[in-house]
């Protein structure tokens, strides 16, 4: 018998793995940065479910906002597509 807790954990794990695979699979680097941000947001929800609100706030602030901003600034001054794709 699965409760709400287990269902939420299984759904979050599956979505996190899916978004991580998507982040590797995309050739457009902007899209894969967005997929990484989605993974960070889901990870912060995971931390909240596991009774760690401190880590959840830190993960949402650093992982989903600041890392995304820094990576987007970085690909603005380099190339957007991965090598070999024009």
């Amino acid at each position: 018998m699965m409760g709400l807790f287990e269902i939420a954990i299984i759904l979050l794990s599956a979505s996190m793995i899916a978004s991580a695979i998507i982040a590797i699979w995309f050739k457009d680097l902007l899209a894969s940065i967005i997929a990484l941000a989605v993974m960070s947001l889901l990870l912060s929800l995971y931390f909240y479910i596991l009774q760690a609100p401190d880590v959840a706030i830190a993960e949402a602030g650093v992982g989903a906002c600041l890392t995304t901003a820094i990576l987007i600034i970085t690909i603005r001054s380099t190339e957007r597509m991965e090598e070999g794709e024009k």
């Binding site: 401190d54 706030i57 906002c65 901003a69």
Partner: peptide, 29 residues
Amino acid sequence: YVIMHGHLTPGGGFQGGAIGASAVALLIV
């Protein structure tokens, strides 16, 4: 708020600082 209530509610210096830096990043965008 998150920084000053770090000893009462979830959060603390690092978390509140990350939120403030996100605000500056929004301003830059």
